[in-house]
């Protein structure tokens, strides 16, 4: 991590929701430049919602989101676009353009926003695809790819313009451990060498330990941040029962059935201890 720890993203008492349904209340946190910031939480707790509010796809019900020195909430269309040019976003569902090949998907932002010639764009796009291990699939359509491949292609597209900030919504879900570890490595390299700031939603404990400089954990009942800190700290001294459960991969209810009531229980999986 770079030595300077200036704040790049500041979320101030953000309240987000859909219609009159509030999902998150009064969420505040800061992300420093070059950090890999991880958002955790159980399914449906509002991680994607938080992300969509930070990148300006949804207008927060209240609160502010500062990116560098610009407030994204009060920004007009033009400013918003300028801010968004600093982002690369990988959506949970991939969101590749189905009518374009993988290469064309990655080429698209380069064609629109740079003056590189055709050949240079080809090279850059192919290199991005190679970074995520998709060399050789350049000319295939997104519809012909496996779920994990689509995910990786979406990451490549998000990286096309070498944005300062990369938002990845569950990049490693559905990937095998080897590919997933490769992705972790890539994230670390990009953040340490190029100073890219990452905001990553993920559930993979191993990946969290590998990449996260800091993490926040959201919760549905609290409707906000349950805990914040480095993954190691969250694991060793969890501030809340739920945090402990998350980092130790325990179910919410005690297992029933044979051996279920056993004290230190073989039903409990202590997988996170690796």
């Amino acid at each position: 991590m770079p030595a300077e720890s200036d704040t790049l993203i500041r979320v101030e008492s953000l309240t987000a929701g859909y219609g009159d349904r509030t999902i998150l209340e009064n969420v505040s946190f800061e992300v420093n430049r070059g950090e890999v910031f991880v958002i955790l939480g159980t399914s449906g707790c509002g991680k994607t919602t938080l992300l969509r509010n930070i990148i300006g796809l949804e207008l927060p019900l209240s609160g502010r989101v500062w990116i560098g020195g610009d407030d994204l909430v009060s920004a007009d269309e033009e400013v918003l676009q300028r801010i968004q040019r600093r982002f690369g976003v990988m959506f949970q569902g991939g969101a590749l353009f189905g009518s374009l090949t993988l290469l064309e998907n990655v080429r698209l932002p380069l064609e629109e926003f740079t003056e590189l010639n055709d050949e240079a764009i080809d090279w850059v796009a192919r290199m991005k695809l190679q970074l995520v291990g998709l060399q050789g699939s350049e000319d295939r359509m997104p519809g012909e790819l496996s779920g994990g491949m689509q995910k990786r292609a979406a990451i490549a597209r998000a990286m096309a313009l070498d944005p300062e900030i990369l938002f990845l919504d569950e990049p490693s879900a559905g990937l095998d451990p080897v590919t997933s570890a490769g992705l972790d490595r890539l994230i670390l390299d990009l953040s340490s060498i190029l100073g890219v700031t990452f905001i990553v939603v993920t559930h993979e404990l191993q990946s969290i330990y590998a990449i996260a400089s800091r993490a926040i954990m959201l919760d549905r009942e609290v409707r906000g941040i349950l805990a914040m800190g480095t993954p190691a700290a969250l694991r060793e001294s969890p501030p809340h029962e739920k945090v402990r459960r998350f980092f130790h991969r325990e179910a919410e209810t005690e297992p029933v059935g044979p051996g279920g009531s056993g004290g230190s229980g073989n039903g409990r999986v202590r997988g996170g201890a690796s």
Binding site: D118, E119, D122, W123, R126, M127, Q130, L131, Q135, D189, S192, I193, L194
Partner: peptide, 20 residues
């Protein structure tokens, strides 16, 4: 060294075939 590490991810031989 950092850039070198990033560059090493790419195999120049694989790109020699890029012809439009």
């Amino acid at each position: 060294p950092g850039y070198r590490r990033l560059l090493e991810r790419f195999d120049p031989a694989a790109y020699r075939t890029i012809e439009r």
